[in-house]
Design a protein around this nucleic acid. Structure first.
Lengths: 366, 366
DNA sequence: GGGTTCGCTGACACCGTTGCCAGACGCGGC
DNA sequence: GCCGCGTCTGGCAACGGTGTCAGCGAACCC
């Protein structure tokens, strides 16, 4: 018995060929279902392969042809255990599985440095394509990949300054509708709670929020416009702080799943969940069972993943497509927390719209 | 402009060597930080590599030495977007990242056929090790891998009939304590709600449940012992059916995250969440904010993943370890739903324990 | 001053597989 | 009987790297 074991020792085609008494190439033919092998040899080869427990080595085979595929793609996500990311992951996996392509998923934890590392990792493994969520302000570091012909699709957040397809949610529309929704319910002192300002989705959501406020000629004081929060706990504390201050908001708009949960917690801790309105961006399981139910702008991350995967496959197949940003609609899900009436509930919908290009507020939420 | 583009064309070491005017081996040395290269050549090579945007090909390099590592492991999970699986995934990733090992994660969706496919896929990619959650009754199909020296660790559910390490939760203990908990609160008509009976975790939880009932000399009628449920919706309907029947249970024990959510929904839909007690197996975000809070036996899936990863690394390093099943404790988290008093609440804790090996019920829940 | 060591460099074989090609064989047509 | 063709088979080179080793100066030690 050897003291220091070796790494797993796989049989090679040479071993199988020797055992079957045939040439290596014949083994290759049999195991790859190529034509022109007699049934007799086929049988011998299969028996030998089974006896040696042979498994094909996909990478060695892929080496031969320079344009060969590894049948793997890289997927970079914020974190594999964030439910939003996980749903994207599953959407991608579902599509890729149909094409026998495996998904290499890695978390980058909103760290631009890690983002580079992960991409490099993928490239060194010669993945056939990349689906990326990015936190970098600029993806110029990928332009060399573009030149090389690597297929890349961005998901959730679009590419900046490089020519790649993107698949994103309608963040602006969703935020605008959410904002209008609480305004129509009579709120005028709203608060915005958001994450990292570098992130495109946050900026879009904030833009939608501010644009609608602007239409109503309402300002959002700095104290009620908080961004840069890193997670549930920071959002919870920020909500508490706002509600402790004089002139607290009557409606809160937290704009990311973790932050919504944090704000919900704060409201419940203070027991004001029935008094202070809230619309969250991102749906979370069980939001419907809370009291009040949590009104949200729901995204469809699974669909984001599917679309990104399909787009990537099309790119990998070199289909002649225009560069495009695909948008997945968001939808307002009313459950109670966003329908709590505000101080101006009575006259809310009758207020003239000073900036209104479309006259009075229209119902976009369907 | 060519009409049909080719696959991404990576520069090779030969290209870099030619541009730098050095031998291929020298390029290899520079890019792998091997000693004995003059600063001058190092500089030239690095410049050439950058100019050509060269990326190492880890698989080609790994081919040379037969015992070479791919620095990748395979992780098979029920589904990457089940929060329980995702937490395991994250635990594994966290540990593996420290060793620059990438994680190939795939979902098997509780399908034994798919399980084989996924494992084969991993093997053909020559992963350095496997972390598997399994649904097969028997993992004999892996004994050849054991012989080959492939490192494998099972997570969440132990290996059957093959000699591999496992990392699991204390399912039996958790279920027993949960059952005792509701019995001590005066319930005598309990209901068990579970998933696939093939799955070890279910059987363990059911065993703990039945053992404690047995100690109290209580039977669980077939109508209240429902297994084989496939998801949230089936659990919801099962709970409704039970509560519609004569002699409904006064306490319910759903034994898996999806099923717990289904039962919670049913209770809320009927408005009986304050009358019918419930203890769930698996914690789910926001359970603490529901009314009543949902009492659960919480697992620690992130820890399961970390431990499995560490164990796998030790195996891959050929450390001389005994074959072992590592157990991660579960803990009872009391939030209200499990403390709803039952019909026998007054005398509950004073009931003699007919089968009690340890006399009267002891508080194991800490 | 000659032998030895050391630092540096590239040629070459080889890792496990597949593309390409040549050769052997059987068979039908003339 | 010879030729051409299709079927079946294996040898060989090549994929993109790395291990091994030999060669070449320069420095070092008696």
């Amino acid at each position: 018995m050897s003291e220091r074991l070796e790494a797993p020792r796989y049989a090679t085609m040479r071993d199988v060929a020797a055992l079957a008494g045939v040439g290596v190439k014949t083994v290759s033919r049999v195991l790859n279902d190529e034509p022109n092998v007699s049934d007799q040899l086929k049988e011998r080869v299969n028996r030998a392969a089974a006896a040696l427990n042979y498994e094909l080595n996909v990478y060695a085979g892929g080496l031969r042809r320079s344009g060969a595929r590894t049948n793997a793609i890289g997927l970079m996500l914020e974190s594999v255990d964030n439910p939003f990311s996980a749903a994207i992951h599953r959407g991608v996996e579902t599509v890729m599985r149909r094409h026998s392509i495996v998904v290499l998923a890695e978390s980058f934890d909103e760290d631009p440095g890690r983002e580079r590392t992960v991409v490099k990792d993928f490239l060194q493994r010669r993945v056939d394509g990349l689906i990326l969520t990015t936190v970098s302000r600029d993806q110029a570091y990928l332009s060399a990949e573009a030149a090389r012909g690597t297929s890349i699709v961005f998901v959730d957040r679009p590419a900046v300054s490089v020519a790649f397809d993107s698949v994103v949610s309608c963040n602006f529309d969703g935020a605008l509708i959410a904002t209008r929704h609480v305004l129509q319910h009579g709120h005028r002192r709203l608060a915005f709670i958001g994450g990292n300002q570098q992130v495109w989705t946050l900026r879009e959501r904030r833009r939608g929020y501010l644009e609608e406020l602007d239409r109503w000629n309402i300002e959002c004081p700095p104290a009620h416009d908080v961004t840069g929060l890193l997670g549930e706990e920071e959002a919870r504390l920020a909500a508490h702080a706002m509600l402790d201050a004089p002139e607290p908001p009557t409606a809160i708009f937290p704009t990311q799943n973790r932050l919504v949960v944090g704000v919900v917690r704060a409201l419940h801790e203070r027991g004001v969940q029935h008094r202070v309105a809230m619309v969250g961006f991102d749906d979370v399981e069980l939001f419907d069972l809370l009291d009040p139910g949590v009104t949200v702008v729901a995204q469809n991350p699974h669909r984001l993943g599917e679309l990104a995967a399909e787009r990537l496959l099309a790119r990998m197949a070199r289909e002649p497509l225009e560069l495009e940003t695909l948008r997945v609609p968001t939808r307002l899900v009313k459950r109670g927390s966003g329908e709590i009436p505000g101080p101006h509930a009575a006259d809310a919908v009758n207020i003239p719209r000073p900036m209104g290009k479309a006259g009075r507020p229209r119902n976009l939420s369907g």
